[in-house]
Amino acid sequence: MLIEIRKEPFNAWQELQSYQEGLKITGQYGATASFVGTMRDFNEDKKVTHMTLEHYPGMTEKHLNAIAKEATETWNLLDVLILHRIGRINISDDIVLVATWSAHRKEAFESCRRIMEELKSTAPFWKKEDTQSGAQWVEKNTSGY
């Protein structure tokens, strides 16, 4: 399991590939589910030029670990990967990567979704968008279900 908060940009697909290549569970997993969140250039009809992502050092890491642990206790998972950016985010930067590995697709699909929805609604991160009309905090995330 790997859970990291990154200040520097990352390519989610390269991260996913290199992490999976390093797994010592070859032959055991039959399903990999992943979610990648990427920076758009708009939000609620406003043009966004870039944004800044803030977190609560210590609590954010602790909380992400708790979300992953809850998923491994709910589903039969072989591994979990969570990466999340902080700092200045540019258009098309990857913001978040969640991936889960399991023997069968049900566990992988459902756990990846649950981790992502829990992260969106409870992990201490905050976005401040820079738009043509100035910087503003994002007040809430859109509903996932």
Binding site: G37, L53, H55, Y56, G58, M59, K62, H63, H84, I95, V96, M116, L119, K120, S121, T122, A123, P124, F125, W126, K127, W137, V138, E139, K140, N141
Partner: peptide, 26 residues
Amino acid sequence: NMEYVKSDHQLKSGDEVAFFPPVTGG
């Protein structure tokens, strides 16, 4: 102390309390 609490949670000496708006990560 880096765990969510309900509003009636009783504080102890040395606690680290955090107040913040709804989260918007991901």
